[in-house]
Design a protein around this nucleic acid. Structure first.
Lengths: 240, 240
DNA sequence: CGGATGTTTGATTTGTGTCAACTGCGGTGG
DNA sequence: CCACCGCAGTTGACACAAATCAAACATCCG
């Protein structure tokens, strides 16, 4: 979604979103002269941080795949997003003393830790950095809003279609095939993210398969009719 | 010569959210020495901006009541939030060449226009401002996420209860009565925001009324049993 | 007063949720 | 190497919350 650095400056967009002007990548070389960038590797299931731990850094995903989970006091829980290479993690907790959500690796991952007060301080020396950081935060808001729109206006099946298109789009940006990829999360995580139940996700996938829009083998997805999917998800044109 | 202390650019928080550490109010006095702050008055129905217009400023709501609407190419539309005094508007479009959503006044309102490149520039002189702006953006993300959690896990009636509690909380912060207030938006806007239909909002309100949790007279709301509401909305303790 | 707009209520339909069984695959240990 | 276990995914039958369709009702305003 946001992407300082390394790659893909643009926030992930739902097809619904307009094209972005927006900030390019942040120069990590440059940044690392100002802040101590620490690299951490994670195995599936490991947390980057948990809600309640003292906030001290934001993170740049360098490799792998993670999910962010929002929790409520009374035990409700929801996946609010999936993060891949180039995405920033932890920005939602800026300004707080403690992290506000959980971030968990779904696959072997590597993240770069950017200690926060130093980053803020570096912004004073590097105006570019400030612009990019702010733009990244704003992009995160737009991404969330685009999903709010989708979740509030689409049926279960349309949400699943939109989700697949989003995954395809992001894979494409990272240089992977947008028509054939592996889902790194379980049905339950997809369901939580889309605000539906895991059986419903399964049924939607099965039906899209039956309609020849996609081919599903457990977590392996092949998009057969991208335009068909887009039409379902209520997004006119094809970009590609 | 701008007004007495403007107030808290903090995003509205769902009761579900933790307390905010976070930045205090933006010092408008100070800011206005660096950027040209323009005041604009709006009548109900007028737009602050529309999606697609060139981005040039963010806005601080000084008085009144507004809604932000997300739109998709294919005509779907959703209210993504309501803004009152102290809220920042337009931050979701930072980094773009054009605004990404619509903002409409629901009541007579006054907003202060903060031209954006100048604000960014002012951040270099006023580190405090940068911290607050970034924190405000992050707060916006948390607010959106908290609602995502709510909309993904609560029933229609619970959403309505959560909505009323949120309104009460925000009225309280601005020094108004949290137990007796006027909704400035129609049922359809509430419904859109909560991802349900307007008839469902009406029914939920009627039932909460019947249960003696609230008293509804069209747009006039009186909270009779706040704790009861909180229990419904799945939020344990009472703060007040 | 009439008409437009917004709200409420009722009757009915329908999309998802719920509950439960079954399948297939991956891992582990005999 | 195969047998067993366990979990993730799939599918079916049924229940239920919310959407839909429709009609009355209130309020505002010219």
């Amino acid at each position: 979604m946001n992407a300082l650095a390394t790659h893909v400056p643009m926030p992930a967009t739902l097809p619904a979103q307009q094209a972005m002007a927006a900030a390019g990548p942040i120069d990590i070389e440059e940044l690392s002269r100002h802040v101590q960038v620490l690299r951490r590797k994670l195995a599936p299931g490991q947390h980057v941080y948990r809600a309640g731990q003292p906030f001290h850094a934001i993170y740049l995903v360098h490799a792998g795949f993670l999910k962010t989970c929002e929790l409520s006091e009374d035990g409700r829980e929801r996946v609010t997003g999936f993060r891949m290479r180039g995405d920033l993690v932890g920005v939602e907790s800026i300004g707080l003393a403690h992290y506000a959500c959980d971030v968990v690796a779904l696959d072997d991952s590597e993240i770069w830790e950017l200690p926060y007060p130093p980053v803020l301080h570096a912004c004073l020396q590097l105006p570019e950095l400030q612009i990019r950081l702010t733009a990244a935060l704003a992009g995160e808001i737009r991404n969330d809003r685009a999903w709010m729109l989708a979740l509030g206006t689409l049926t279960a099946e349309q949400r699943v279609a939109a989700f697949l298109l989003d995954m395809a789009e992001r894979h494409l940006r990272l240089g992977f095939s947008p028509r054939h990829f592996l889902l790194r999360m379980g049905r339950a995580d997809i369901a939580s993210f889309l605000g539906i139940k895991h059986e419903t996700v399964t049924r939607a996938l099965s039906r899209l398969d039956r309609l020849q829009c996609i081919d599903v083998q457990r977590r392996e997805i092949r998009l057969l009719d991208t335009d068909g999917l887009r039409r379902m998800a209520g997004q006119g044109e094809t970009l590609h």
